[in-house]
């Protein structure tokens, strides 16, 4: 059972333009940033590509800049750089906390923001070796036509488990996407689709260049549940941004990862504005989250647990942020 890579070429552009062009010229090629997800998946044979377009030589992708309007974070910024940036840690706490909670230090040194946002979805029937998947019968996401998690359904339920996305969603991030046609800007939420097999709304060859964060976000936080204190992807991850006014909620945003095929903003939090954080509100919140998450049997931990944990983390984060805001 081999775990080495097949025949491969690497091109190393130094501008976004060249990178996009290289991808465009070679159908079936892939971008590689840190490679901490891509190389693992290629060694397992779940991603096949004979040409990689290396993003690490593109200087413009690695900057964090601030102007009067927003903070711009290049897609090539590493998770370690993000976590250690004092401006990020001060202003966008959820983001720094999320970055710090990813994988282990060695991955964070090379793993990037772009790679984390464009992370492949995960499933116990998918993140397995070629031998394993062929022995089991390939699944819908990879070379087969049945989903082993939900055989009746027509779609893949593999879970998105990147940690940064929910933090960025509650902070109101927008992203720049480059293609041969130029650069477009969209809200981050529009990058994702609830389909484990095609969860990114990126056309083939489109490059995530940077993301923008508004300068004065409400206080935020991120928490994830996992079995171990490091390495593990989130079974459920929750980001919350909460502004209080006096005893009441002013604005509340909640986003989740690890439970669905996409990270998403919990819908229906607007009515909480103007209400105090009491048991009633927390209970409603609990219901709201439990209703919107759709964990499936894609992890060894039970789906129901991921649902409950998502709600429990939300409740706790909301309480904590509110208490800190009031203090």
């Amino acid at each position: 059972m081999s775990t080495s890579l097949g025949e491969l070429r690497l091109v190393q552009p130094s501008t976004v333009k060249e990178a996009v062009a290289a991808r465009f010229e070679h159908p079936g090629s892939r971008f590689i940033a840190g490679g901490t997800d891509l190389i693992v998946n290629m060694r397992r044979g779940i991603i096949r590509s004979d040409l990689l377009v290396d993003l690490s030589g593109i200087d413009e992708l690695t900057e964090i800049t601030t102007d009067g309007l927003d903070v711009t974070i290049g897609a090539g910024v590493t998770l370690a750089a993000l976590a250690h940036n004092s401006e990020i840690a001060g202003r966008y706490r959820a983001l720094a906390q999320a970055a710090e909670a990813i994988a282990a230090p060695g991955h964070r040194v090379i793993g990037t923001v772009g790679g984390n946002l464009c992370l492949d979805t995960r499933c116990i029937y998918y993140n397995q070796s070629e031998w394993w998947r062929s022995a089991h019968a390939y699944c819908l996401k990879n070379r087969g036509d049945v989903c082993h998690v939900a055989p009746q359904g027509k779609r893949c339920h593999a879970a998105f488990a990147g940690d940064l996305a929910p933090a960025l969603l509650v902070l109101g991030a927008e992203i720049d996407i480059a293609s041969a046609q130029g650069v477009r800007r969209i809200p981050l939420s529009e990058l994702y689709v609830e389909d484990g097999k095609a969860h990114l709304a990126l056309a083939d060859g489109e490059l995530l260049v940077a993301l923008h964060l508004p300068l004065n976000p409400p206080p935020s936080g991120y928490a994830k549940v996992r079995l171990r204190g490091a390495i593990d992807f989130p079974l459920a991850g929750v980001a919350v941004a909460l502004a209080a006014s006096g005893p009441n909620v002013n604005s509340l945003r909640i986003a989740l990862t690890g439970t669905n095929s996409r990270p998403f903003l919990v819908a229906g939090t607007e009515p909480f504005a103007g209400r105090p954080i009491d048991e009633k509100l927390l209970h409603e919140l609990d219901r709201l989250v439990q209703k919107q998450v759709q964990p499936m049997r894609t992890t060894i931990a039970s789906a129901n647990y991921r649902r409950i944990a998502a709600a429990a983390l939300t409740r706790r984060l909301v309480k904590k942020l509110f208490a800190e805001g009031a203090a």
Partner: peptide, 23 residues
């Protein structure tokens, strides 16, 4: 260890979770 139809669901250090130094 967890088997899925006889195949190991745990055959990696991501799924076979031995404790890390962190916890």
């Amino acid at each position: 260890t967890r088997y899925l139809d006889g195949l190991p669901g745990h055959a990696s250090f991501l799924e076979y979770r031995m404790p890390t130094a962190a916890e």
